[in-house]
Design a protein around this nucleic acid. Structure first.
Lengths: 260, 260
DNA sequence: AGTTCTTGTTGCACTGTGTGCAACACCCAT
DNA sequence: ATGGGTGTTGCACACAGTGCAACAAGAACT
């Protein structure tokens, strides 16, 4: 909608791929060098980009700080965290918490496995949406037309032979997940890794997040992992209960400045 | 430099404090509602802000993803990580890695303590610059005028009775750190938490990062923690060596597309 | 040392983009 | 129904953003 801002923001993902110099930025934006320079300077003033010693630009520190503050404001995360830690202490595996937002599913919290073999994933990383257990749970909760539209639009990369191959299969899987109230990913993303997930619901019954436990085959088989399902569901339910209990007050809190 | 972009970017830190509606945003920016609306829409299109169900805006998912990609591009981090893990396995305490960037020091990696009592800190969070061991190390390496200028400009919050009280004391501390090649924070940020840190240097001898080990009093006393100093320094040196070895090649790599 | 590229920076005239206004649409309360 | 509180749309004006061309500063040659 706003050309200048649009261009400026387009620089960020571009730099996320790796550092770039002025000409490269100007080139990829399709604007004159001087224009790109002004945009970069503005971004720089706000700490969004950083100019390294070789004069090339890369993403700046403020970005981290912002992402940081943003994630701290998600109250589900705050409530869920101790539960995730507790679950991790009981079973020892990696525990994830994820939310859905505008056609993306992303991890907002993670407790690392106690076993030496760990998964590669990170808070803030978008999830493999067509296969991950948490993604299935979150998408299964979308209203039918939206779910359908999204499913049609997605890519279905074949990470492994057990990845969801196409929209039709995905929608069928979502229906199943919706029905049973939990989800799995059995080697759909990485051949040797399995996950079991359960939904976290708000007071209105809608999903606000999803959580999962993941472990590689070498540590426990898929069958063994599935025995954890009741524990996972109980944890998710505990979070749901606590989250729903918190029936929204904090908004006005920061305004109040009353004296005793 | 660019008014529109400047305004748009100013919205982000504002939303980082918490969700806000159109009027609040317009008000705090000092612009008309319609202007704020257009800016927010542009930010929205880029996934930088998200519109929650009550119509208020908050920071969006893309921000996480960007910060994520940004941190992955920092090659010190990649090299350092296994060393940090190893150090954590040896001593069990929380290990941090931090860099300096434009008047800020921020954590770029962290390995959690194995003990149940954990510190509150997070990757991406700006460090308490006047007291943290890693901050002292990084600032001590700045050229004298810059260091002085920064020290004068900083605030010196008294987190505890042992916090650095003012610029003069801070500069003296930095001189000491520079001299001895390592740094501590003994209860300067939180009464009961101590840290020992050591510098990571590039091929040119300049600091590229700093690392530290932190532990609360209840687990080990400050004296006991200091006995880890040689180990911490050895780890930092190992990272320095590996980092310097990597004498910059990767730049051209992504351009190449030659046939066999 | 001189010359030629390459890349970043500055000043300026033009116009296209962002601006604020006012009117409108909408929702929730009363 | 009626009112206040929001978010949204269309439009005329002007100023902020644009691209150009000329300049500066290095690096990489000969």
């Amino acid at each position: 909608m706003s050309q200048t801002v649009d261009r400026a923001l387009s620089i960020l993902p571009l730099l996320a791929e790796g550092p770039a110099n002025l000409e490269q930025v100007a080139g990829r934006l399709g604007v004159h060098k001087s224009t790109a320079l002004r945009l970069l300077r503005t971004l720089h003033e706000h700490g969004m980009v950083y100019r390294q010693s070789d004069q090339r630009y890369r993403l700046g520190a403020r970005l981290f700080a912002l992402a940081q503050q943003a994630v701290e404001n998600l109250d589900v995360r705050e409530i869920a965290h101790p539960h995730l830690v507790e679950l991790n202490e009981k079973c020892g595996h990696t525990v994830h918490l994820a939310v859905y937002e505008e056609n993306e599913v992303l991890y907002i919290d993670k407790v690392e496995s106690r076993y030496p073999v760990r998964m590669y994933s990170r808070i803030g990383k978008p999830v493999a949406i067509t296969v991950a257990a948490v993604a299935k749970l979150l998408l299964a909760d979308l209203p039918e037309p939206e779910r359908r539209a999204l499913a049609e639009k997605l890519d279905y990369p074949l990470y492994t032979s057990r990845s969801t191959p196409h929209a039709q299969a995905f929608l069928a899987e979502l229906a199943k997940v919706r029905e049973q109230g939990w989800a799995t990913d059995l080697g759909g993303h990485e051949e040797s890794i399995n996950c079991v997930g359960a939904p976290v619901r708000g007071a209105d019954g809608r999903l606000v997040a999803a959580m999962s436990v993941s472990a590689p085959n070498v540590v426990v088989t898929a069958e063994e992992l599935l025995t954890l399902l009741p524990l996972v569901r109980r944890t998710a339910d505990a979070i749901s209960r606590e989250y729903s209990g918190n029936t929204r007050v904090p908004d006005t809190q920061d305004q109040k400045e009353a004296r005793p």
